[in-house]
Design a protein around this nucleic acid. Structure first.
Lengths: 201, 201, 201, 201
DNA sequence: GATGAATGAGGTTTCATTCAT
DNA sequence: GATGAATGAAACCTCATTCAT
């Protein structure tokens, strides 16, 4: 059916990774995908529309994957270890780089920005789910609100990506994950408080 | 001396805040500053050069201010409180918005990107200085490397700004600062270990 | 038979009225009529061809209606009164707006321009018929050639429409019709000369 | 000073005459004037802006010329004769053809349309001035309102031009002017009524 | 030092038209 | 008969940059 539509989406993501937001022009996308620039406008209203669709696709599928891989884990070390693998996966496929470019380039007030806000909320919801399980019964849980912590985690992840993308220094996330593992190990050693008949909503 | 050069730099920052990276064109800068477009090229090699200089100026002066305000503080709560004030100051002056735009728009491999990496390192150095004092003698200091923690702090700050800039939701940093204060209070209650003959590097 | 062909013609006229000549694109016509753009090229050689056919249809049917309503009238006042009604009818149906758009947009030398010239001649012929009856025996008839007067009438009508279309001021034709009625009343009071041996053509 | 600005205006008028409204594209204007398309946008905000300026210039200068040539004439025959010469002049210079194209092509609601409405009013004012003098004391003056007659004259002139431009048949205005002269001669033979103490306004 | 006019490449988008299905 | 995806040319417009003054 919309075979070409998919090719356009893929080309747009490709272009984001290779040329950055500013270099993701209609012509560049067309060249990357090997089709005429007009094709874009047959399938999408405009570039903004295309990028929104591309974002929805890549972000959505990544969220699904992250959730599938991490859901229900209640110990921090394996979570961080898995996160690192997923991050490496993202780096290879370039999908996270594409999203990063969108965060960087989107102008506030555009549909793309709105959509990014939406996707951000989805990532925050996922983080909240995971953190809820991780923090259950831990003393830390009584100090911080999970929702806020989730927001901080997403912001941190985004900032790390921005910096990494900027200087191309892959050792930065590597070091951070290393450190994360150590902290996670300590965290896991903190015993859970016992509660009776805890029922969450 | 080069009075005009300064006007150009100010105009460029102005333009970044008001029009974003993509809207910071030679014409727009000239209009913002009330001079002819050609002036830019008299004082700077090209737009990249101008933005590099603008970044150096604004980032440098902000780092100086942050250092002056925070240097030597050894308790977390006042540090976070001060940070919040500085952040609000940044928000008002728009300087942080300008830098944020540069992080967003800079293409890897350009001189601007190199300069951003350099400024990032300076911020990380500042964070390292402050964290070194804060963590002195604390148990956490034996678990995480200060340098890495400093990098994480900068990344987190940048990510928070990116998200805030995108959706314009000022409540996000407010909530995070609130939470930060609470964590800082707990942190401050953790006693410092006594060590003999402490030698720093 | 070619039911769809008719739908295409109607859609083209619709589009002319709503979007103007410049907005009457293949896509817009297709959307207006609820069919695929390709359909146009199945029934018509190109857009020019379609517009020619649309013009022929709408202009032809309007000429027929004008002739049916006005033919044989020999007094000016009822003619002008009837013209005003027909004009209002045209305005409502939008058919006159469509033709006006074609006059405006047609490039000299195209088939559409040729066809417009042809339709103009038909309107001039109709005007000539009507004026011949009206002027019969009037002193004015010996001063002006009916054919030229007919041409002037059509030109005037077209010019009035152009101006009205441009500024959307419907009071213009209203005022002109008012004035026309007064002149017609005076005209009707001028007695007809008696002639012997009337020979037509 | 703005030498080039003038060249752009001239090129636009040239283009209107030669290529019509639809053919007056930025590229075509640039080619006609022998400059780069970008020049247009240096001197004018957009094409609409350019066409408004071109209209103001050509229409304004023609109105001035018409007024200078015709003002104060109180006999119809020399007026019509002079009109014919001016019309021929217009035809040669092509300026009237350019304006005609603008009337035809302008979309209602654009700045160009607004400006055309303004220029139309100016032509109507001129016509009103001239007709006021011509009709002074004539019986016709008590039957028609001069303002309405002026509006009709402008509409007629425009319609005549539209038709002439469309089919390129120069004999049409020639014939109409011939006929006009004959009517003017009759008009001039109608005696003026004597009025006492005529006070205008 | 400064100006502002000019350039030409390249940006997004639209369009008439074709063609495989 | 009809479809709708695809094309490539060309539309308008913006931009960094240069250069004569």
């Amino acid at each position: 059916m919309s075979d070409t539509r998919d090719r356009v989406l893929e080309a747009a993501l490709d272009c984001l990774v290779r040329n950055g937001y500013g270099g993701t022009t209609a012509r560049a996308i067309a060249q990357a995908g090997g089709f005429a620039p007009g094709v874009i406008y047959y399938h999408f209203a405009d570039l903004d529309d295309l990028l929104v669709a591309a974002l929805a696709r890549t972000s959505g599928s990544r969220i699904d994957r992250y959730r599938a891989e991490l859901s229900g884990m209640d110990r921090a070390v394996p979570v961080v270890a898995r996160l690192r693998e997923l991050y490496d996966e993202d780096t290879e496929t370039g999908h996270i780089a594409a999203v990063q470019e969108l965060y960087a380039g989107a102008r506030p007030g555009t549909r793309l920005a709105d959509r990014l806000a939406l996707e951000t909320r989805r990532w925050e919801e996922l983080a909240e789910e995971l953190l809820t399980v991780l923090l259950r019964g831990k003393p830390l849980a009584s100090v911080v609100r999970v929702r806020v912590l989730a927001g901080a985690a997403v912001a941190f992840y985004l900032g790390m990506e921005t910096l990494t993308h900027l200087d191309g220094d892959r050792s930065r996330p590597a070091t951070l994950f290393d450190q994360g593992i150590r902290l996670a190990a300590i965290f896991d050693r903190v015993p859970r408080l016992k509660r009776r008949a805890r029922r969450v909503r």
